[in-house]
């Protein structure tokens, strides 16, 4: 199953709906899952999300899976001595009582080998695997190429 789920009537009436959905698994809350539109499918896409651990046990994000990309990976953008690179992240810690953001300029899901171009307004599922809490599948909203994040009314800025 490599087809993208198109955001249809729902997206038209509530443009920010997908990225503002909240998903839970165990003590973890996953929200603000979004991606950027791509030009064609030849370049990798990106995946951003926020994870809150309300429990008292540390957890970690250890993997991604999605029908939208053949090779999704966890990356971390590192700017050191004025040079940016994005090494592979084996896992992203989600400490007890904290919120961790995969956000521009830091941790991100790198969606390599895209099945198809990501178009603004589309959405696609991503399954996140946590070391302790297990798996949860979230809907990812594709925002514009120039987006810096979803605009959710409840989002604390």
């Amino acid at each position: 199953m490599r087809t993208l789920i198109l955001a249809t009537a729902l997206a038209l009436s509530a443009p920010a709906a997908f990225a503002c959905e909240t998903f839970t698994v165990g003590d973890l809350t996953v929200e603000h899952a979004w991606s950027r539109a791509t030009i064609g499918a030849g370049r990798p896409g990106v995946f951003y999300v926020e994870i809150t651990n309300a429990g008292d046990t540390d957890d970690a994000l250890i993997g991604l899976a999605t029908p939208a990309a053949g090779m999704p990976m966890l990356h971390e953008t590192v700017v050191m001595d004025g040079v940016a690179s994005m090494p592979h992240a084996m896992s992203i810690p989600v400490p007890a009582g904290q919120t961790v953001a995969l956000a521009p300029g830091g941790y991100h899901g790198m969606l390599m080998d895209l099945s198809t171009a990501l178009k603004e307004g589309d959405s696609f599922p991503v399954t996140l695997t946590f070391e302790k809490a297990g798996e949860v599948t979230v809907n990812v909203e594709v925002l514009s190429l120039r987006a810096e994040g979803p605009d959710c009314e409840h989002a604390a800025q």
């Binding site: 950027r36 791509t38 030009i39 370049r43 990798p44 896409g45 990106v46 990356h75 953008t77 940016a84 994005m86 521009p104 300029g105 991100h108 790198m110 969606l111 190429l145 120039r146 987006a147 810096e148």
Partner: peptide
């Protein structure tokens, strides 16, 4: 470079703005 989905779009978006 264009195969750079994280850092480069952020800067290009700022320039566009």
């Amino acid at each position: 470079f264009t195969n750079c989905p994280d850092v480069c779009p952020t800067t290009l978006s700022e320039v566009a703005q």
